[in-house]
Design a binder for these strands. Structure first.
Length: 117
DNA sequence: GCTTTGACTCTCG
DNA sequence: TCGAGAGCCAAAG
C-alpha cells in the first residue's frame, strides 16, 4: 500500500468532532514525513470520504486548506508561516465548527479534541 | 532521474 | 517568548 493510501485510510478513521495532527498521522503510519502528509491531503482525491479538515498542525493551529486558492505568491518556508490563516482556512474552520469542534482564533484545543490514533 | 516545492516540525539565538 | 533557519520525506515538474 502506498503512503498516501495509508494516510487517507488513517485520516478516514478520525471520528466526527475530533481532530488529529500531521505529526500524529505521520507517526501512525511509521513515517516522519510530516510534510508529505500535508502534500497528500492537498491532493486528496477522496473528499469528502476522507475528512482532511480534521488534520491540523501540532501546535493546535488549523494550518492550511486547499479550497480554491493554492500556491499563490511565492511560498518559501518562512513565508508559509506568515500567511497562516488565509484563503481556504476559513472554510476549514467552518467545517470543524459544524462538527462541534471549538476553534478559537484559528486554533483548536488539542487537549480536548485530539483523537488518539 | 535530478531538482524544486510543500496544508509541517524541531531547534537555536 | 518569539522569529528565523534547517531538516524531513514524497510528489510533481
Amino acid at each position: 500500500m502506498k503512503f498516501r493510501e495509508k494516510i487517507y485510510k488513517t485520516a478516514a478513521k478520525i471520528p466526527r468532532g475530533k481532530v488529529t495532527t500531521y505529526k500524529a498521522l505521520a507517526h501512525a503510519i511509521n513515517s516522519k514525513a510530516y510534510r508529505a502528509v500535508g502534500t497528500a491531503m492537498n491532493k486528496n482525491p477522496h473528499w469528502p470520504k476522507v475528512s482532511c479538515h480534521r488534520v491540523i498542525n501540532s501546535d493546535g493551529r488549523v494550518g492550511g486548506f486547499a479550497e480554491q486558492f493554492r500556491g499563490r505568491e511565492k511560498s518559501s518556508k518562512s513565508v508559509t508561516r506568515a500567511k497562516l490563516g488565509v484563503s481556504g482556512v476559513k472554510k476549514k474552520i467552518a467545517l470543524l465548527r459544524k462538527e462541534c469542534v471549538e476553534v478559537i482564533n484559528g486554533k483548536i484545543d488539542l487537549k480536548r479534541f485530539r483523537y488518539k490514533l
